[in-house]
Write a protein that binds this DNA or RNA. Structure first.
Lengths: 332, 332
DNA sequence: TATCATCATGAAAAGGTTTTCAGAAGATGC
DNA sequence: GCATCTTCTGAAAACCTTTTCATGATGATA
């Protein structure tokens, strides 16, 4: 059904080389032929076959993105940034999820190999090196929010540690000493970093860590709800609860309100990520603003650079830890 | 860098035809050669070039999905369903956003043409016919949640009208007569349907429509917040507010709490979509459950059918309006 | 042993593009 | 008017598969 360059050539009574030249305006073609080709192409609704093009050029004009999940406002924001940057660059976007499983991750990378010019990978439960070991060597990869053993790998993170540390210090400054903490997924890089921020802030202030105030959680509302219920039920109830992300905080908020405790009067509450919902929580949630959209955009830029100029050039631009910002609202 | 079938053939000392046969096990090959080929392929880390394959087979093993936006929990759920179904079918997923603009939509479809075997399109502000008119005729398309002028087009929707009508009837049954309504985007199909459900339910119960209780909104928390503030400020304040989706309802909830009105005591509140956050709102939000994930999965199945067996077969399976379910929680 | 069917294999074509190479046509300088 | 140089154009190669076709080998049957 689709017309080929051959059809266009026939209709315009020129060779296929000429058609190609006109369409890519690569060098001079006489005006009359040029017009004939353009007319013929329009009449036939000709579009070059991308498979043939990429077979020849070894480029695809696309890149892949590999996320643990797509659910959640954080990922939505991130995707948003990636999508708009990709669209501006005229690139197509292939997406896949790994569910934090190494096998799925490897399968997805294999599946995208040579269908994309490069990949954006977010793999918080392994290291960038481990991923690269199982990936084709000639595929430019930029990592997001992933642990790295050494340098030499394009990697973009934001300051999980610093953000949570600042938030903890904020609570300490407000006089809180017994601060409950609902962790993220135990094996996730960012969750560990956030926990470290909490731990070290306490330590620096000489506040002993109460193990019973630490609840293992997930980045979900459900986990936040469950965790908060546990903390509220303690004999020595904490005066503040820190959730490892906003979703968990919103779940915790639900549990706290259910127990008819006031926020922040009886229990202060904080989150992390600053998803849109944080501002509309009741009361508005104190949280750490993460530039998710920006992270998406920047990572696309770096990938673009890696594709065009090689990994080494991209490297100079990357290795960045994007700053985060404390957003103190009514919940603390 | 990547090895080709030619390299494998050379290393295994066979012809490329044999390599191809072994790798696709299409017909019998002697055991010794088969082993040599397999060894060589493994040693070289050979993967067939997808561009060459799809050039020959005219298949891509991928499909495209075109959404208005990717932000928001509803889309995340939908994407989730699509992604998992696609992964099961071994298909790659290309994604793009249209921002409800016809130009972007057309550009995205053109961009994906011949890079995908079919497309899933959600275009609530136009009609499926309008989209198809500008699309290549030989591209299977399944529409989601899109208005259609006639039949004959694979289309999957859920019962926007019925859901909102049922919710309105629920409020009427609870004795509400002055019910504020925060609309969705004026030109969106689903938003119009939801509004119609509200209007006709009132009409059926003989309750006159108060124009001043209808606020033009968006599917955002911000719009819900603004809309609710307006409604609360009215001299003749409504006793209930219906938001066109959960995001708007959560924003409205924020405004109501800010005004220190009780929910549902002084103002009842309802949403639509049943996003995960709805259950964790305080109080938990009465809403209409929409099978977003299911919608995603089903649409992939239908597209798969359209690709394999032609549009007509897929058509029989589609045209469905997925049922929605009232979820009455504490907010009403 | 001769014939036939079956099996295994390689050569070659096709799929649609871009690009190189070479040739033809026209222009320029003497 | 001839040699040289541009400018324009077409043929063909290359990109990497899959599949058809043809051929040689193997085994079976009469």
């Amino acid at each position: 059904m689709g017309a080929t360059i051959r059809d266009v050539a026939e209709r315009a009574k020129v060779s296929i080389s000429t058609v190609s030249r006109v369409l890519n305006d690569t060098c001079n073609v006489k005006a009359d032929k040029r017009d004939r080709v353009l007319d013929a192409a329009a009449a036939l609704g000709y579009t070059p076959n991308p498979a043939a093009q990429s077979l020849h050029s070894r480029k695809t004009g696309a890149f892949g993105i590999l996320l643990p999940y797509v659910s959640g406002e954080f990922y939505a924001e991130l995707l948003n940034g990636i999508d708009s940057a990709a669209q501006e660059g005229g690139r197509l976007l292939l997406i896949s999820t790994s569910h934090n499983s190494e096998e799925e991750l490897e399968a997805a990378m294999k599946g995208m190999y040579r269908r994309v010019d490069g990949m954006l990978v977010m793999a918080p439960v392994t290291t960038s090196e481990a991923v690269l070991r199982r990936a084709p060597r000639d595929l430019p990869v930029v990592f997001l929010n992933t642990r790295s053993e050494g340098g030499g790998i394009p990697l973009l993170t934001f300051d999980n540690y610093g953000g949570m540390r600042a938030m903890t210090e904020h609570l300490i400054q407000r006089g809180h000493k017994d601060i409950g903490f609902i962790t993220g997924p135990a094996d996730a890089f960012d969750a560990q970093e956030r926990f470290r921020g909490y731990r070290e802030a306490l330590h620096a202030s000489g506040i002993p860590l109460r193990e019973d105030l630490i609840v293992n959680g997930e980045y979900t509302q459900r986990a936040g709800y469950d965790g908060a219920r546990y903390l509220i039920g303690l004999a020595q109830r904490p005066s503040a609860i820190m959730a490892s992300n906003d979703d968990a905080a919103i779940g915790a908020l639900s549990a706290i309100r259910e127990a008819e405790l006031s926020v922040p009067g009886e229990i202060a509450l904080t989150g992390f990520d600053d998803i849109p919902s944080a501002m509309f929580a009741v009361p508005p949630l104190s949280t750490v603003h993460v530039p998710a959209r920006e992270l998406g955009r920047r990572s696309v830029e770096i990938l673009e650079m890696a594709i065009d100029n090689g990994i080494d050039v991209a490297l100079e631009e990357s290795g960045d830890v994007l700053p985060v910002e404390l957003r103190v609202r009514a919940s603390s």
